[in-house]
Design a protein around this nucleic acid. Structure first.
Lengths: 160, 160, 160, 160
DNA sequence: TTTT
DNA sequence: TTTT
């Protein structure tokens, strides 16, 4: 059903990129988004929202985004849950980015603000390595991001 | 900064409405949002997203929404954190609804699909009780929802 | 860059589906969206927004949507311009839908509210006819909807 | 009903601010939004979307936004129609901004990227002048932007 | 923990 | 746990 989020904030740290066993890139970062508006009195409040990016877009984010920079993120809200070491079920809410807009505004790395759209290339350069069975990368068969399946990734695979 | 979410799903239960000590209505419910699309094979996956609604809109939601019904919600993503009984800091992500669209589709309570916009009346019917100091309800002075401040509500006040 | 619209309204008529010469389905309809909110006095005001849908999603919309039904549309705002018969340049603003949610609520055609996501199948069933040159359908090579190119469709091709 | 747009682009010119007879500020500008994404071949395509801003937010936009700067706009899509000099009914689609995020990135006016939220002050500083009857400014009674009524503004009032 |  |  309909599940859409659009965010604009600053990275609290450099992004972290990892690869799933099958070779898909996954990048995560946190966006700090001020709740208060300009010229408003009162203590500033901030929401810190975790962002997850997959595939080619993950590599672009890892390459171009830096701590302190502004970015606009478009995606869907996802609730993952897993069992932690103490056997408790933990729920994690994060935004799965389908598009990311790089806005400079960091500490001088300057450059052109630019856009990294979702899945603009077949993304077939990823994975590889082979391995039998239905590869986890098979979600690339359907490049529409809503169809990504980080779901059946075992706990060890999780890069965050 | 920019923080916007638009969701469409079904209520997993009837909404729950409570009042803060100062008399502001707060309604909460969970929206079940299927990730999979129509005619797509494979097991269905669902995100369960907690929704919070304040003030007059809270009362309308409590009155008209029922378990199983469809609703469209527009708002912002918020991360609350509090210390639980074990002294651990717990983070809760929820969507603070500014607009809610009632879509029937439940088990026959029928009626007209209708809309409950944000703060369409001065909402002055709330609170009251008076008392000195800056009332927690003072956020009603600025009816623009981004300005709501559930933030400084003490733990005991929290209705969920 | 970022260009996102989310709409929820009712179809003013049954959708119209046509095919481009190369065989891509294009469906158009208008969504009536009330500006006023429930329980608000005053004359109701309505925006009528033209929606365009391509490819497999176009076929699903043509098949399942009917006049009077509610639908949620997610897409981007596009401004097309063309020269009309009098030699005047005309600008048309429309929403290119990437996802459509079917919500019943029409005059009893009932059925399951369902979702038609963007590009969930390779959509390779379209087009055909072959022919040389760069087929207009080649946008299907990149299934991400932002990449669709209705732009270079000649005036005669336009199905609306 | 639900009608939400989120845009990120660059101003094609400096904004233009005018006042309605009753003293409400109205600012208009056009946002150029590239359709193509970074690193994609092919001619760049751009949508030019007209933005309308009212009240205090209009003044902030006129003051801080300049040609070439980036801005994020959140609002609703509106279709106005009026009769032109030749007696033809003309339809104008524009985005009524409820929030605007100023992102630098122009030609060096630098400064802090900042946010101008909707209606954060009662905006009562506008209008004035008095005059009998229901002032056009009365929409300020309900500061929620969905409630703005540019609709009954006569043609002469239109600042664009 | 969940809705259809 | 955090960004400006």
């Amino acid at each position: 059903m309909l599940n859409r989020a659009v965010l604009l904030g600053r990275l609290t740290k450099d992004p972290e990129m990892r690869y799933t066993p099958s070779g898909t890139a996954v990048t995560t970062f946190t966006l700090a988004i001020d709740r208060r508006m300009t010229n408003q009195q009162g203590e500033r409040e901030t929401d810190f929202l975790p962002i997850v990016v997959w595939s080619k877009l993950a590599e672009l984010c890892a390459q171009y985004l830096k701590k302190g920079q502004q970015a606009a993120v478009e995606g869907r809200i996802q609730v993952r849950n897993y069992e932690n070491k103490e056997g408790r079920r933990v729920y994690v809410t994060e935004i799965v980015a389908e598009n990311v807009q790089f806005l400079s505004g960091g500490q001088g790395q300057g450059g052109e603000p630019s856009y990294a759209g979702g899945f603009d290339k077949p993304a077939s350069s990823f994975g590889g390595s082979g391995g039998g069975g239905r590869s986890r990368d098979s979600f690339n068969d359907n490049p529409f991001a809503d169809d990504q399946k980080p779901i059946d990734i075992s706990d060890d695979d999780l890069p965050f």
